[in-house]
Every structure is written in C-alpha cells, then in structure tokens.
Computed example of a mutant assay.
Amino acid sequence: MPIDAAKAIAAEPRSAEITWDHKDIQLYHLGIGAGSFQGKDNPATDPDELRYTLESRLHVLPSFATVAGAGMGVVGGLSAPGIDIDLAAVLHGGQTITLHRPVPVRGRAISTSRVAAVYDKGKAAILVLRSEAADGDGPLWTSDAQIFVRGEGGFGGDRGPSARAEQPGREPDRVVERAVREDQALLYRLSGDWNPLHADPEFAKLAGFEKPILHGLCSYGITLKAVVDTLLDGDVARVRSYSTRFSGVVFPGETLRIRMWAGEGRIQTSVTAVERDDAPVLADTIVEIA
C-alpha cells in the first residue's frame, strides 16, 4: 500500500531552517492579487495596497505562513516515511493556520513538520501535515494542511472528523468580488508551489481537469486579504487563526464572490465562482479574530 499510516505517523519530525525577507512577502502578496484591488482609481499605488507591496510600509498577511520557506512543511510531509503517492492524485483538501504572534517582515525560524494524522475516506485518504515554526523569541505559527489523495483510501483506518460550519441564516454583512487574473497561478507558484497542475495543460488533463487550476492556497490568501481589508480595517495583527475547506476549483480568469458574516470573535465566509453560477470554492471558512 502506498500509504503506511502507522509508519507515517510514527516517523520522527523533520526540522529545517527557513528564512524570508521583504521580497518574499511582496511576491506572495502580488501572487494573491495585491495592487489590483477593484474599485479604486489607482489600485497599484493606493495607500491601502502599498501596505502589501511597498517595503517601507509592509505588513504581512498571516496566510504567508503557508508559503514561508517555500512551503517546506507540505513538501516534507509528502515525502515522509510510509508515504509514496502519485502527485497527480493529490489535492489540497483544507488548511488551518494558528498565529501565535504577528509574522515579521524579515525572519529566520525553525520549521518542524510531521504527519499528524492519516484518515480513511473510503475512495481517498487524507493526510494531515502539521508544521510548527518558531524563532528565537518563541512560537510563530502552527499550520495544518489536509491533503486529499485520491485512490488511497479503503485501508480500514479512522475516517476522521466531519464537522461542518453551518452558514448563518441571514444575509451576509458584506459581499465583495475579487477578479482572478489569467496569469495568477503562474505568479503565485513562484512562492514555492511548483505543482504542474497549476501551469501545465497536459498535466492538468492527466489529473482530470480541462485546464490548469488555481492553487487552493491562492484562493485562501485572496479571501483572507478581502476579510482583513473589508472588516478588520487592514489590521493583520487581529487574525488569530484561519481555517477553510477547499470545496471546489477555481480557473484563472474567473471571479471570486466572497460573502462575510461578522460574529463575536470571528468572521465566517463563503467563497464561490461567479461565472459558474456560484459554484463553491471555499467552505467552512472561519477567521478567528482579536
């Protein structure tokens, strides 16, 4: 069996030093659409957008943690002992980030990664790949990536949690739309996710898609930026955790419709693709805030 759950979970955690600076932050922000905020006269130089793109004013969107060190936590997890899988069968099923303090613009940290769980969903397996980053001042973030591996279930393991976030029974407090550029995936992948599914049409067809799809984590970052800019007055430090389930694909060139419901200590969102009759993109999406 390509996945030996017991062996993968028992494997020693892997640690590596990761570093980043303002260039990595700026590239990530551009990869999720910073500088192209719709509805402004001069979006690229608007002061609110320069917080994402100009080094002298830079702050860090917390979802940057998913690509810090070129996403070594996920890469390391997929090559862990007990795991031997076909990349074409892999999809990102969900993502959670917990922030222990704001991410600095320049950093050097130790990232420790391990396979935290392997769930049996019948026709597929889900790997929970956990990465924890800490620097000299202590913990920075914990990241859990849920990786969906088609064709690797049915081994008799635990099915895992299946809790869903019930959508509020009222109209959203805010609804915004964000256009995804045709070249968005090509730019986003420069932050470290080189899966050809997001660039190579032939590979995308082998994986069952008519053309390359956008990275789920790109939609994830676009959504968090929209929440921060719309309901948190641009204050990235208020984000305590951010979780989602990837419920559908996005094709470059489409438009994301982001619905937001503000509650006590959290903001819930729902994300759909406008051009495909509001086809689901992100579900069970919660931003815990201070």
Rank of each mutant, 00 (worst) to 15 (best):
G153R: 03
P212G: 10
A117R: 12
D24L: 05
L186M: 07
S131C: 10
E182D: 15
G94C: 05
G157Q: 09
G76D: 15
A10Y: 01
L231T: 12
V115Y: 01
Q38L: 07
Q26A: 14
G216M: 09
H100S: 14
I18G: 11
L129S: 05
L78R: 03
W194T: 13
L99Q: 10
R259P: 08
H198I: 08
A109C: 04
P47A: 08
L30D: 10
E17L: 05
M72W: 00
I289D: 05
G151C: 08
L129C: 12
I32T: 10
A88M: 11
F209A: 07
K7C: 05
I267P: 04
L30R: 03
I18V: 14
Y52Q: 14
P104V: 00
G265I: 07
E17R: 04
S162L: 07
W20T: 11
V175Y: 03
K40V: 15
L214S: 14
R245W: 02
F37K: 10
F246D: 09
A5H: 09
W194E: 15
V175G: 12
P139T: 12
L197C: 12
P280I: 04
Q167T: 14
L224K: 01
A262H: 03
D193A: 04
A80T: 03
P13Y: 01
Q268K: 03
R174K: 10
G263F: 02
P280Y: 01
R114K: 12
L282N: 11
F37G: 14
R57W: 03
L197F: 05
G192W: 00
S241W: 06
W194V: 14
R238A: 15
V250Y: 02
D200A: 08
A179N: 10
S219A: 15
A88F: 01
W194M: 14
V75F: 02
V175D: 11
V281F: 01
N195I: 08
D135W: 02
I258T: 04
